[in-house]
Simulated assay, not measured.
Amino acid sequence: MGKHWAVAVLVLGSLAVPGLSPSHAQELEGASSMVRDAFATLLGLELEEGVTGDGSSDIYRSILDNPDAPRLLTYLEVGGNVCRARTASALQFPGKWAVLSLTLTDLRQVTRAVAYGSLDDMIAERKPLQPNDPDARQLVLEGIGLRCTRRLSLGSDTGKPVSTCSDRLDIAMTSEAQTTHARKALALMAEKCGITVLAN
C-alpha cells in the first residue's frame, strides 16, 4: 500500500466513523441491509465493486485488473432516516495524493424522474421516456440539493474543502442485471420515501 493511499484510508476512516453516540448507533442499526443495498445500486456501487460490511455500514473497494488504474474506496451508511445516505470516499490515481469526498444523498428531494433509451439520448436530452418504460436504459432523478458533496485533495496547498451540490442522480440500466437491480431499488425507495414521480 502506497504512503499516499495509506494516509487517505486513515483520514477516510476518521471521517466516516466518528465517535458514535448511543442515539447515532441506534440509528445505524435501524437501517436495514436492504435499504443500504438499494442506495448502493442507485449510487453505482453495487455491480462493479467488492463489498464488505459490519452490519450497519458497507465498504466498497474498486476491483483492479490494471495496476495503473485509479483506486476507489467508498464507505456507505444510512442512519435513522432511510431516505438519506452518507458516503465517504477516497479516490487515488497512481503516484498522486488521494481526493476525499463526503456526500449526502437525500431521496426526499426528488421531484422529477425521466428516462432515456440510451446514453446518447440522455446527454442530448432527447426522446424522453416514462421512468417505468421497459425500453429505458438510463434514468435521471432530479431535485434541488439531491446530492451535496464536500471534497478535499490531500495534496492541496490550501487544505480547504470544496462544497458543491448536484440536482440530479444518473442511474444506468444498460444490462439486464443493472435493470433488475435498479428497478428493485427504485421501487423500495419510492415506497419508503414517498417518491410519487416513480409511481407506476
Rank of each mutant, 00 (worst) to 15 (best):
L45R: 06
E77K: 12
T41W: 10
D121Q: 12
D58Q: 15
A25C: 02
A199M: 10
E48D: 15
D170V: 15
H4D: 14
H24L: 12
V162A: 12
S21Y: 02
A172S: 15
D157K: 15
A6M: 09
L43V: 03
L188I: 05
W97T: 09
T41N: 00
C148Q: 01
P18C: 04
Y116Q: 02
D167M: 03
T196N: 08
R150P: 04
C83D: 03
D65Q: 11
T87N: 00
L119I: 13
L12S: 01
P134Q: 02
E46A: 11
T180D: 10
D135A: 15
N132T: 15
L73W: 01
G55I: 08
A115P: 07
V35Q: 04
K192S: 12
M122F: 06
R151K: 12
S33V: 10
A31R: 06
A124W: 01
L146I: 07
H24C: 07
L169E: 06
S166N: 14
R126M: 07
L198G: 03
A113K: 01
S156G: 09
A38L: 06
V11W: 01
S156F: 07
S101I: 04
L102K: 02
T174P: 04
T74Q: 05
A90H: 08
S32V: 03
G2P: 08
E77W: 10
G13E: 10
P128T: 09
L186N: 04
A40V: 04
R86F: 05
A98M: 06
Y116V: 03
R108L: 08
V17E: 13
T52W: 10
E176S: 09
L12N: 02
T164L: 09
V11F: 05
Q92L: 07
Q138K: 11
Y75F: 15
L43H: 05
T111E: 11
V114P: 08
N132M: 14
T164P: 05
R137Q: 14
S118W: 04
V140C: 00
W97E: 12
M1L: 14
I144Y: 12
